[in-house]
Design a protein around this nucleic acid. Sequence first.
DNA 1: TCGATGGGCTGATCCAGATCAGGCGATCAT
DNA 2: ATGATCGCCTGATCTGGATCAGCCCATCGA
Lengths: 238, 238
Amino acid sequence: MPLVRKLGAFVALSGAEIDVLEGLRKRRRTFVAGRDLVHQGQSDQVAYILMSGWACSYKDLVDGQRQIVDFQVPGDFLGLRSVLLHISDHSIEPVTDIEVTEILKADLLEAFAQTPRLALAIFWAVSRDEAMVVEHLVGIGRRNAAERLAHFLLELGARLALIGQGSKAGFDYPLTQYLLADALGLSAVHVNRVLRHLREADLLTFRDGHVRFIDYDGLTDFADFDPSYLDQVGPLLT
Amino acid sequence: MPLVRKLGAFVALSGAEIDVLEGLRKRRRTFVAGRDLVHQGQSDQVAYILMSGWACSYKDLVDGQRQIVDFQVPGDFLGLRSVLLHISDHSIEPVTDIEVTEILKADLLEAFAQTPRLALAIFWAVSRDEAMVVEHLVGIGRRNAAERLAHFLLELGARLALIGQGSKAGFDYPLTQYLLADALGLSAVHVNRVLRHLREADLLTFRDGHVRFIDYDGLTDFADFDPSYLDQVGPLLT
DNA sequence: TCGATGGGCTGATCCAGATCAGGCGATCAT
DNA sequence: ATGATCGCCTGATCTGGATCAGCCCATCGA
């Protein structure tokens, strides 16, 4: 299970703790691509763990624009923040068909009371998510389009590497350039142009559902990518 | 104590829980304006609760720019994220002289184990902080300079109202236009111009250390400010 | 088989906000 | 009393990325 793998990067979980996580298998559900699981303004107090597929969390603006806050990959929580806040401040949309397991507020209380170490591990995961949002903020606020895009793809690569789905060579993605634009605060037109620049600079390619890092070190340098905020020790094996 | 007041907006804390918080008084420290308390890359695993004064958390880029992620006001946590992550991914600078109380990682574990409700309240505060960062991300990504600035000041007003230091009429601030620019992803020059526009549109004034909301409802409308992400029920009394 | 749709790609034009280059007044140290 | 510094303010110019308008190709349902 990808979550166990991810949390394992932070603390060695005991058998009992892993059992708690594995016990969640029972509440498995699936959702189809494109139809929101959580909608802005809803007050369900339910979160999910993503088991397979990709999702994204985003906010809509009145004028019809939207900002994608982050993509979620297997092992990530969906909507954990809205369990504590009374109203969900964002929407979540599956990018692909996805499988999830449900977490209720009661589960969280249970985890806090019974297995403080597991609670701490969840707290770590939440902190890491927040660190990623902060990094996106910095990217949108201060990096130009090319650096921002490169940085974003490097981050995704590192995150996927942690669950065994990416490496320094690249990774498979289910994203469109429109999704990327919504995440990066750019127009789809400009995303396309920037991808061409990166390709022409022999840094990476982005096509047919696969990112290939051609010059990983050059790219890291270009994007000023310092993965320490991801808190992964040896993030990229290959 | 402002933290008690803030958490009280989420759960009614028991006497015992308040005692735990009040017990932190002993580890009070002060810092002078401008000198970083926490520096990017440091690995101290210590956080603080801000008792008085303002601070800001920010990230530096290689090219000398910086992005302020958020300002902290009394009752807010400083650097809580870096207690869990092994390395602090950001810096924290006091905007004014500040008073803080220290929280060690051990305290946090203690809180999780002993008083799960308090732990939940802290979790709530962290979720709220994250929701604010997300809102800033949306602002920088998709709002124009004027909307972004107005939204930001309205948010600050609401946050200060929660601890009794602001209202629909306005609030006192210790910020410069340069700080505002670093927070909003704008240049200081442009912040100045936008402030003039907002003043000329009879929406607000920003001078002599005091924000005055001239047309609160008009401003809310203009900035598309929906405070539900702050999870405050009756945020603005006056 | 042929529209319709969705994703990718491109050139031309436009504009919000950056950058450059200052000026003004208040405070403060010598 | 005089620089130096800091915060605020302004006009002129430049530019990164948006917007507009459209083409190409693959897929898919009727």
